[in-house]
Design a protein around this nucleic acid. Structure first.
Lengths: 219, 219
DNA sequence: TTCTTGTCACCTAGGTGTTAATAT
DNA sequence: ATATTAACACCTAGGTGACAAGAA
């Protein structure tokens, strides 16, 4: 099983339609993917990685006066999909179980000739992160299978952008990302509370599917 | 073969008798170990790690009026020796060859109950860093040998201290470590040049053994 | 018009030696 | 006396959105 350690933050963004900045040199995500896993074999080796799949086949545009995202033609051509491996690398089940697994170093870019290891996305397109947990085979000669599971959380989908479109998203990023403290215009704690309260009392959908969709694959 | 990419800086410190701070929470070395390797098999896997061996069996004391280190009794008991693996982990020869191999994240501590992965040293003792390059065996069943080489450079030996003893060492650290810029009292470039010139024109030994001592081991 | 890029002030995070207080 | 510790100001390194300029 996999859970997001910062699920409620993701949900707060999702109610507004999450946006993630992409830049030429690479931009971190916020919120980041923070996993808690369980059910691994303690003494087996695993690697964990993440990739991003297009949510659909459209290009999007943000309408400022209706404050909504609308389809604007077919999707641009996709670029070769790289995946990002969790930096801890190959670790035992007992290691993964006891820590919050962070992907905060992961960077998104719109630079197609990127020489770094960043994830390439198309701006103004919608994506869904996927988490892959791979059980590495033992050195038994008989066992050349590789088992893995893929997890995805619908509420972590986002629009890739080069500049924020929805001002509420900007305000929630400023309120909740420590690196954006310089743009806060009130007491930090009050800011977060104020916005989160506003969300809680708003007319936006309150119940949502928060459990992970699970695909089991064996090859 | 192994070379130090920052050999001349190490030599400048060595002329004054290098000191390295150890703290409870762990302190980086300066200079750091920066390696350039050659002669590896391009397609073979290697790991590289570092450990520290006592230069001798004595405890030391610094005499301020004679500006020298003197023996002050037998060495304190040694603590279990950990080694520090280069963070890149298992890499092919072709990877190691093309980069400068940095150990700048390595930290020294005098904290014997350290819960981090830091190297434990006794303050007021003299140490010599050793570099171990290990060729990992292939998956051939016949080949369970493990080949490695150990390199050491005499001019990288140092005294572990909790506070600097020799004021010239302090000044050279301030002049050459970017993180200590706040303590420079003149133009940074001038500072370095001034001290290095002073070293060059001084009476200290000018010729020294700079090639690595090599031990070849097979088990 | 719509989207992208580069620069900037303002942060976080953490590596420096200094200094004064404390321990041995 | 000598050695160690903790708090501190001052740095490096790099993550923020704002903003103005540029590109499509």
């Amino acid at each position: 099983t996999v859970e997001l350690a910062n699920k409620s933050l993701w949900e707060s963004f999702d109610r507004l339609n999450t946006e993630m900045i992409v830049t030429k040199s690479g931009r971190r995500m916020f919120p980041t993917l923070q996993l808690k896993v369980d059910g691994m074999v303690m003494s087996s080796k695993y690697v964990i990685f993440v990739d991003f799949v297009p949510s659909d086949n459209y290009r999007y545009r943000y309408s400022f006066h209706s404050s909504s995202w609308n389809q604007a033609g077919k999707a641009d051509p996709v670029h070769p999909q790289k995946s990002y491996m969790q930096p801890d690398g190959v670790c035992l089940g007992q290691h993964w179980k006891k820590t919050i697994i962070n992907f905060d170093k992961l960077k998104l870019t719109n630079n197609t000739v990127n020489k770094n290891g960043h994830i390439i996305l198309n701006s103004m397109h919608k994506y869904l992160p996927r988490i892959h947990i791979v059980l590495l085979p033992n050195n038994n000669e008989n066992d050349h299978h590789c088992y893995y599971r893929t997890f995805q959380f619908d509420f972590t989908s986002f629009y890739a952008v080069t500049a924020y479109q929805n001002h509420r998203i900007t305000r929630l990023k400023i309120a909740s990302n420590p690196f954006a403290k310089g743009f806060r215009d009130c007491d930090p704690d009050d800011c977060v509370l104020e916005i989160l309260n506003h969300l809680k009392n708003s007319h936006w959908k309150k119940s949502m599917k928060t459990e992970a969709s699970i695909l089991v694959v064996k090859n």
